[in-house]
Amino acid sequence: MSTIASPPSRGKGWVFQVTALCIVLGMLLALSLRTQRRAVSEGIPNRWPALRAEFINLKQQNASLQKDLAEYKERYEELLRKQATGQAATLGLESVLQEAKMLAGQIAVHGPGIIVTLHDSPKRDVNETRPEVIENYIVHDYDIRAVVNELFAAGAEAISVNGQRLIATSSIRCVGPVILVNSVQVAAPYVIKAIGKPDVLQKALELPGGAADGLFLLDMIEVKQQPDITVPAYSGSMRFYWAKPLPQPKEKSR
């Protein structure tokens, strides 16, 4: 074997040199072990620094994303709940409002009912001149009141007189030769539209000795049943200047 650097040292001299370097190796080994333990105790993989950085980065990102996800899920649930309750509440409110409006005559309604027409009696003698006799043959405000009252008593749910919807504050009266309904002048023929069960409404008017008995006698009234009539909404204004709602005890349901 050819010598490259120096002639090989014969004998056991090499053992001491190996021992010398073994001391250095031992120091290196101790240092390496210590450093390795430190790396492990710091809880990070010691290889591939670039990967390690990426790993830590991804781990943090993952954690924050998980947190975001939980947050979004919670918000989603909350919105769903809100939507559900909101919809129910809105629907409930709307139906209540609709009912109240119908009751107050604020919206037009339609349904089966009767149309009552009142006009002056054709049986009047044209030669008759006595006012107290003529008076009996013409339609008065109290005739209309009586018919309307009878219809309401028979279960009419909406009534109009010549297009004037009757509401809670409606009045029917005469001023001289004209009749005012809701303070609006109306003229003959008086067309009263009433929504309700047609048969019942008609029978109520035809009751012998009833409110409209005299009108039938003098042919001043005509009653027609209709499958579908429309009663318009109250068109005047309705303001409360004096009446104030009394605080009500809270309803338990709802």
Binding site: V15, F16, V18, T19, A20, L21, C22, I23, V24, L25, G26, M27, L28, L29, A30, L31, S32, L33, R34, T35, Q36, R37, R38, A39, E42, I44, N46, R47, P49
Partner: peptide, 28 residues
């Protein structure tokens, strides 16, 4: 003899508890 040397060298660095930053652990 080398084993004894190894043990001696090991003790020199092990007992004081010396260590380098963890980033060089792999290279060490």
């Amino acid at each position: 003899l080398p084993l004894v040397g190894l043990a001696i060298g090991f003790q020199i660095y092990w007992l004081p508890g010396l260590s380098l930053p963890s980033s060089v652990a792999a290279y060490l």
